[in-house]
Simulated scan of single mutants.
Amino acid sequence: MFPRIEKLCRKLETERDSISAERKQILEKIASAIDSQIENTGKAQLIYICTHNSRRSHFGQIWANVAAEFYGMSSVIEAFSGGTEVTALHPNSVTALKTMGFEVRTTTTEANPRYNVKFGKQRSTTCFSKVFDNPENPDQDFLAIMTCSHADENCPFIPGALSRFASPYEDPKLFDTTQLQDKKYLERAMEIGREVSFMVSQLASK
Rank of each mutant, 00 (worst) to 15 (best):
S197K: 00
R164F: 00
E187C: 02
K184E: 15
E170A: 14
Y169F: 15
S197L: 03
R188Q: 14
F198G: 02
K173A: 13
M199C: 14
E187D: 14
D171H: 09
V200I: 15
R194H: 03
S197Q: 05
T177E: 14
A189L: 13
F198I: 06
S163I: 00
Q179I: 11
A166Q: 02
V196F: 04
K184S: 06
T177Q: 12
L180N: 13
P168E: 08
S163R: 05
V200Y: 11
P168L: 10
L180T: 09
V196P: 01
T178C: 05
M190V: 07
E170R: 12
K184Y: 14
S167V: 08
S167W: 15
M199D: 10
P172I: 12
A166F: 04
Y185W: 03
K183L: 09
Q179N: 11
L174R: 13
E195V: 06
V200H: 13
S201E: 14
D176S: 10
F198M: 01
K183M: 10
M190W: 03
S167M: 14
E187R: 03
K173D: 05
Q179A: 15
F165A: 01
S167Y: 10
Y185H: 08
K173L: 03
S197I: 02
G193L: 05
S197H: 02
E187W: 00
A166T: 01
E195N: 04
L174V: 06
E195L: 06
T178K: 07
Y185N: 05
P172L: 11
S167R: 02
F175M: 09
Q202D: 02
Y185E: 04
D176M: 10
D176R: 08
P168Q: 06
P168A: 08
L186A: 10
S201G: 09
D176V: 11
